[in-house]
Structures are given as structure tokens and as C-alpha cells.
Amino acid sequence: MRINSFLFCFLISALGWSQANVIFKDRNYFEAQNEAREKNKPLVVMFYANWCEHCKKMKSSVLQDTDVVLFYAQNYITVAIDAESDAGSALKQKFKNDCKVRSYPTFAYFSSKEVYWGGFSGEMKKESFIEEGTKLLQPENQLPQLKAAFEANVNNPEACLKYIASIRKAGFDATTITQRYLKTVPKENLFTELNWRIIANGINTVEAPEFQWIIDYQKEFGQAASPQRVEKKIIYTVQDNLRSAADALDTLNYRKKRVFVEKIQLRKTDSLLYKYDTQLYASIQDWKRYQQVTLEKTDTFAAKDANQLIENASVYLNYIQQPDALRKAITWVDKAIALSENAEKHLVKAKLYLKLKDRTQALQAAETAKKWSEQMGWSSSESDTIIKEIKAAKL
């Protein structure tokens, strides 16, 4: 009996290590899907990117862990695919109505008949990865069942929250689901911890009327959850909405969202407006709006940010011509120098003065940069070049 037990443990261990080179390996998706049908086992697809450090880390550790290998080899057919390859792009397109692959790694779970059960994105620890796979083997945790439970009882907050969570994990917006539930809730019953969680997870656009509820009833929601959680939700939603539009250079959508954010009138959201206004207007080279925003708001929102001050001043140096605006940029450089001095900042100041045709001040700033570099034991060649340029300039 002892021998049999020993052999059993040995075989299990050997299976684990042998399977370590099998699960979540690159293979043809359709071959894996056929295998899932034949064996009547669910299928998990790992979408990864070759440049993704989180993918590399999971592949080299979690996906080679014996417990993970044994669990997934026993319960699922697995396949990995480079999401940025032709085959990966085609597969993302195939499942675009089931899940959105927006970050890596993304794990998508399907039944043997290719019905999407759920999934998630991001690096996971061993225990959590097994836990997610275990949960999705239970029908009550699968997206079709969650949807059916919600549709059967729209005013059930627990069913709504579970459905929202699954939809969000799949990469979709849950606003309409949340709104359907909230229409069933009288205002006097709105301010509960569970309803706050539904709103916090389900409302993620600044245009949604329910987001305005959060603004209007910060105190009430703060009592149900906490003031810190409510403020964090407001800040995160504003940041996420503005950043996505600014990064995409989607000026139409950005300006639409900007109207709603401007109405909030919180210092932190106003600061985010300043940040993304300057980012967007610089990216699209709308220097008129960039100048307007920076002149009006830099002293309020960037007075203690040396990098932003110098970035603004450098933009003015390259793209702004008005003398008064250039003098304002010099005051930003002075503030940046007061926060953290270096030769580069003095050189920006020298160039701004040179653009203003003020030889005396330009030379003084350049010589200060040279002196500062020499004191630090660094090369002063750039300062020397600018000093020569200033002296040779015909002003």
C-alpha cells in the first residue's frame, strides 16, 4: 500500500512537471477548440504580447507552477496566442462581442461549445489564478447565468453587482445595466453601501446622469461608503475619461467630456483639466488654446511642479511669440529653479531672454548655467555654445 501511495504521488508530480511545458502554449486556436469539443472540456485562451513583462512573468512562474498546471490540465483545454499576430488579431475580432482584449495578459474562458463564460486581464498570483478558474467552472458564476439572474430580477442589487463585475472584466461598459437597476430604486433607498458599490463599478462616464448624482450627493454617499471612496471615484472617473480622449487625440470627445468635468468645480478635477488640456493642445499643436490655458492656470496648478513649469516654458520658447507671454514663461523658469536648480533650467531662461532680444539678461542666465555646471564638475560645453551665440547675435 505504501508503494502504491508513493507511486501515485510520484506519478502526480511527474504529470505536473511534464505538463508544465504544455499548458498555455502557442497553438492553433481552432485545433484547441476542436479538442475542447471532443473532450467536452471548457477552453481558456491566453492573449499575450511579446513585449508584455506581465505576460513573461506569468509564463515563467505562475503558469509553470505544479498546482496551476495540474488544475488547468485537469479542468480545461488551454491555448496561448500572440494577440498582435495576424491570428491573434483575427481571434480578437472573432470574439469582439464577447470580450475586449485591451491589455495583456487577458484570459478568456469558454464552454466546449464556445460560449463565453468570463475572464480577466492582468498578472495574477498562483492562488488567485486557480480561484478564478475554479469559480468559472460553476454555472452560477458564468456570464450567461449572471445575465439571466439579472434579467429575471432587475431590482436585485446582488444579482446586478455580480453581472456588472463580469461585464466589466470582459472589457465592456456597464452603464446601461446599472441604469436599469437604479430606475427601480427609490431615492430614499439609494444611499446604501451595496448601491454605492453598484454605482462605483457601473457608472464610469462623466456624461452619465448618475455620475452627477455622485457629485450632488457626495455627503450622503460618503456616509454610506466613506468620503474618501467617493472622492476617489470622482477623481478616477474624471482622469480615466479625460486621459483616454487626450491620448487618442479625440478633440471632439474630449471637449464633450470637458464640459461635464468643468461643472464639478473641485480643485482636484480642475487640476486634471489643466493637465490634460495642456497635453492635448500641445499634441495637436493648438498653441492658441495651449497659451490660454497655461497663462490662466499654471500658477494655480503647477507652481510646485518643476518639470511642468520647465515643460511649459520650453513650449513657449519654441512656439510662442508674444513678448508678455515669454516674460511669463521666464517667471515659471524662476519658480522651477527655486524648486530644484540645474544648468538646463538656467539655459532655458537664457534662450527665452535671447528670444526677447535681451542680451544682458540672456548672457547673465547662460553664465550662471556655466558656473553651476563647473561647480558640479559637469561639462559646460552647452553653456559655452549659448554664450557665444548670445554674444554673436545681432539684436
Rank of each mutant, 00 (worst) to 15 (best):
F8V: 05
S13G: 14
S13N: 11
A14Y: 06
S18W: 14
Q19S: 09
Y29R: 08
R37D: 00
N40M: 13
V44H: 08
H54M: 02
C55V: 01
K57N: 13
S60G: 11
S61Y: 03
S61M: 00
L63K: 12
D67H: 15
V79Q: 04
G88Q: 08
K100W: 03
R102A: 07
Y104N: 09
S111V: 02
V115N: 10
Y116M: 08
Y116H: 10
E123L: 10
Q138A: 13
K147C: 02
A149G: 05
N153Q: 14
K162T: 00
K162G: 00
D173S: 13
A174Q: 07
T175R: 15
K187M: 06
L190N: 06
L190D: 06
E193H: 12
W196R: 13
G202L: 08
V206F: 02
G222Y: 02
G222R: 14
A225V: 10
R229F: 06
V230S: 09
K232N: 15
I234K: 10
R243N: 09
A248K: 15
L252Q: 15
F260S: 13
V261D: 08
I264V: 05
S271N: 11
K275C: 00
Y276P: 04
Y276I: 00
Y281V: 00
W287Y: 10
K297V: 00
N307P: 02
Q308N: 13
A313Q: 10
L317M: 10
Y319F: 06
Q322H: 11
V333A: 13
A336V: 03
A338Q: 14
L347M: 13
K351G: 01
T360M: 04
A365G: 07
E367I: 03
E374N: 12
S381Q: 13
T385S: 12
K388Q: 14
E389N: 04
K391R: 14
K394H: 12
